[in-house]
Write a protein that binds this DNA or RNA. Structure first.
Lengths: 350, 350
DNA sequence: TTGTACGCGTTATCAA
DNA sequence: TTGATAACGCGTACAA
């Protein structure tokens, strides 16, 4: 027993019949194409408006084999980075007259697979994706490209499969913030590392190591502790560090992101340690809470909007066939210096 | 000069030819429909997998006149409420096998109009919308409904046009939080009101007044000050209140939202007043920063995820034709008691 | 300037 | 169980 669907959508055919002309003429008039008498054109447009004609983009897409739509897959939607990136994507998309289908993988490989296949089936003209954690099989991405759909990664990328990527230069940024600490004469610096499987974690760890080496210091491996990306993990990791003999304690900490830093700050405070006087700390990502922590957290600001904007631009370049080979765009992050690193005033230094 | 679009998508026809059977049989096999020999079915599925067949949902939608897609229009995308609501919508949508097209009106009536028309043209099965500010022409919404597209408002609604709505009960929530203060023996309570044009502001003000009256007290109109919805406005409004003679000062403050409360807290602190010992304060919306203010801010939690979830459920009920008339769903907000209201420990009371 | 025939990829319908 | 035909709404190509 099927429901009666009203579907009061008027078609080009119907418009044509009502006006006593052919569908083709109506189509031409509606799409501002040449070879239509001005009077006929006016008549058509007027009728279309009056009858509330709305073009069927489904039919149009089928005929033109082009949807003027791009798909976006994000692993997380609540975290402030992605809404901002989506905002950036959306600005470009809108200005180009394209539409946007949003899919959410919820950090699940299966849901990501679903999402990509759906987007492919919807025949989007291109896909922007920030991949879920723990993805190790890249064959789907390759398949998409092979089938002729433009693809660009943003924020979380896969290298070596010929796909462009726009991301934050995590390694350079981590190196920069670590250097900042070292320049202020902190010698022993710890790192709360994210998952060793995640590219951003690895990049930040690399940047951290690089900075230490560049200062002619050596890395104390015991001061590199895995914290994950959330507050509780940061807390645990810091507790673990504080369980070391006091003389092995670090003078400063570089956390893989702000939530981890928040957890670490809690651990420090609970141990009766002052920030930054006893141990300084810096985060990563400029979480909205960073500025109002006590003390305010020094961090690295991620220009999410910019990442989204650039990624969308790259995708459109690719869709238009202006992009020959895979490119790698790295947006420069920005160091936001606050009290937690103890570097604001010279006299606070170690 | 047209570009060569690879578009290596295999079709049902091609599959059929390769297998030497008809397209119809392939279609039946792929869609798990009856009347297909088990062996044929297996052969089809195997071939589809091997050749990377991906169904063309555009063609399918055209044939079935159903897209299995809903559209969502939000006025803002960075504010944490909407990402969470979208998350809630997404969970329902995903579980129902539907897809989601996201559109962003950026608080602009024109962009909202664009978005709605696009969604209509894309023949989505339903639309969820939280309307932009300053919208006064509701004819478009009515038109959408008339054309047979299901519509449900969420968070920001329009009444009286026969469309269902899911929102937070602002008036009741404001009444509840105000009552909470009054129950703890605060007598003089001020209100930082948002814009008198905004529905949520008006509702919260109504709730505030109602609670006061219910306690047999009268409202001191001088203690109701317009603050807008942001931090600076909250600061200004509080300064204005503190410029009153000391004896007219309130013992507690209900702010229209958290940012306004943050501003007010800054004003209080700068005046050397203690929170909550001298003046207590409560906010509205459980901004992520509320918990880490000094002192932590008592506030009203907006279950955004829940609003999104419920709205999506309503929409699906409507799409399935199970919904006769327009309904009004109000999600109950939740009071989050922290230190700023001075009600956590009995001995702190006034 | 206008109109006709056909195809886009899929499924419903009805016949075999 | 299978297949041929038509239709979904639109635009391209070509003819009138």
């Amino acid at each position: 027993m099927r429901e009666k669907v009203p579907s009061n959508h008027i078609t080009v055919q119907q418009l044509a019949e009502k006006l006593g002309i052919s569908a083709m003429t109506v189509s031409r008039a509606l799409n501002n194409r040449p070879h239509v008498d001005l009077k006929t054109r006016k008549k058509v447009l007027e009728a279309a408006r009056r009858l509330g004609y709305s073009p069927d983009l489904i039919a149009k897409s089928l005929a033109l084999r082009k949807t003027y739509t791009i798909g976006v897959v994000v692993p997380e939607i609540t975290h402030s980075f992605f809404p901002e990136a989506i905002h950036g994507i959306e600005e470009v998309t809108y200005s180009q007259g394209y539409h946007l289908i949003l899919a959410h993988s919820a950090e699940s490989a299966e849901r990501e697979r679903d999402a990509i296949q759906t987007l492919e089936s919807k025949r989007v003209d291109g896909i922007l994706i920030s991949i879920a954690q723990n993805i190790s099989d890249f064959s789907l991405y390759k398949q998409i490209v092979r089938k002729g759909t433009s693809l660009v990664f943003f924020d979380r990328c896969v290298w070596g499969i010929g796909v462009s990527c726009v991301s934050i230069d995590d390694e350079k940024s981590a190196r920069q913030v670590t250097r900042h600490l070292l320049e202020h004469r902190y010698k022993r610096v710890a790192h709360l590392a994210g998952s060793p499987k995640l590219a951003i974690s690895k990049a930040r760890l690399r940047g951290f190591r690089k900075a230490i080496r560049e200062f002619g210091l050596s890395v104390d491996e015991g001061l590199i502790v895995e914290s994950g990306l959330h507050e509780p993990g940061g807390y645990e990791a810091m507790v673990k560090i504080l369980s070391l003999p006091t003389k092995r304690w670090p003078r400063a900490v570089v956390a893989v992101n702000d939530p981890a830093a928040f957890g670490a700050m809690r651990a420090l405070t609970e141990h009766g340690l002052r920030i930054p006087e006893d141990i300084a700390i810096v985060g990563f990502s400029d979480d909205i809470r960073a500025a109002i922590m006590t003390p305010p957290l020094t961090t690295v600001r991620q220009p999410a909007f910019e990442v989204g904007r650039k990624a969308a631009q790259r995708l459109f370049a690719h869709i238009r066939g202006q992009e020959k080979s895979a490119t790698r765009t790295e947006i420069q992050a920005e160091l936001v210096i606050r009290r937690s690193c103890g570097c604001l005033y010279p006299e606070q230094k170690a």
